[in-house]
């Protein structure tokens, strides 16, 4: 029984919750897995630090919250700092290079950075940062098949923005694939 916990962290407005929603939807609707999404909910979710957690499993998720996540997707340094010590010993940290400055981690931690904001800006809209990050996460982890994630993006973003978002996803994915080929830079 494989169960993985994913924490997505960033600032309110960055699309943290949507990112978690797409991961969960991709897993449970398009990939025959079970996925439970919960989110930090309250004043902190409105403009400042914000986080979502997805538990993905082959079997029904019984305990709904992440306890020691195997994966972190970090879009703000505050979010990274808040949650870094709750991670599993062996974990993957996926972060936005220009926004997050990861500390030195132990040898069991894989960290992958991407200039997601710049990539999103090149696509014309900074707002798709979360989808760039999602594509990137999809490439550097094996949690959810790429096609499932793409379908998750396509069916979850506002109507009329599918093309832009899929482009953002593909850019992030490609960046991740190349980085993984070259081996992750450990920090």
């Amino acid at each position: 029984m494989a169960t993985n916990e994913i924490r997505i962290t960033g600032l309110g407005g960055q699309g943290v919750i949507l990112c978690g929603y797409i991961i969960g939807k991709a897993a449970s609707i398009y990939s025959n897995q079970h996925a439970t999404l919960t989110q930090s909910f309250g004043p902190e979710a409105r403009g400042s630090a914000c986080s979502a957690q997805v538990v993905v499993s082959d079997t029904r998720v019984l305990y709904p919250y992440a306890t020691s996540p195997q994966v972190m997707l970090a879009m703000s340094n505050d979010g990274y700092m808040t949650h870094k010590d709750t991670m599993a010993d062996e974990c993957t940290i996926v972060y936005e290079k220009d926004l997050v400055k990861p500390e030195k981690h132990g040898p069991k931690v894989k960290a992958y950075g991407i200039p997601g904001t710049r990539i999103a800006e090149e696509l014309g809209h900074k707002i798709v940062l979360n989808i760039v990050m999602l594509g990137f996460l999809g490439a550097v982890t094996d949690l959810i098949p790429k096609e499932a994630l793409r379908k998750g993006v396509e069916s979850s973003v506002p109507a009329g923005t599918e093309e832009l978002n899929l482009k953002a996803f593909d850019k992030g994915y490609e960046y991740g694939r190349q980085l993984k080929e070259k081996n992750a830079v450990k920090v």
Binding site: I29, H34, L37, T38
Partner: peptide
């Protein structure tokens, strides 16, 4: 309860 109400699943 809040947990079930705000938990997203299939």
């Amino acid at each position: 309860d809040e947990c079930v109400g705000h938990m997203t699943e299939r």
